[in-house]
Amino acid sequence: MDTSEQSVESLAPLESGDLRLGDIPLQQTVELVNIDLPEDQAEPLLERGVLPGCQICPVRSSPSGDPIISVDGSLLALRRETADCLCVRLLTALQDVS
C-alpha cells in the first residue's frame, strides 16, 4: 500500500466556492461534482457508486454527528472529514425528481 504523504494528488482541482456535502442539511438531495481526495481514498467511494454526477441525500446523522447518506438506494456511513471532501451542487430545477 502506498504510504507516501507527499504525492497526495487530488483527482481534480478544487473550484472555489463549491459546496461541501458536510454543509448540506438532512434530506436535501444534491449532485456530486467532485471528490477532493487522493485516489486510494476515493476508490472505495467510487466502487460504491459515489461518483461525480450521482445524487446524494444525507438521510440522517450518527450520534457522533457523522453523516449517513443515501446513494443509488444504498445507505453509506461516512466520517464528516470525508463528507467535507465531497464537492456537491444543489439540484435546482429537478429538485424533487430523485
Binding site: Q41, P44, S74, L75, L76, A77, L78, E81, T82
Partner: peptide, 12 residues
C-alpha cells in the same frame, strides 16, 4: 503511522 484514513460503511 499514516494519515487519517477514511471510514466507509455500508448499512444494509
Amino acid at each position: 503511522k499514516a494519515r487519517p484514513g477514511s471510514f466507509l460503511m455500508e448499512l444494509p
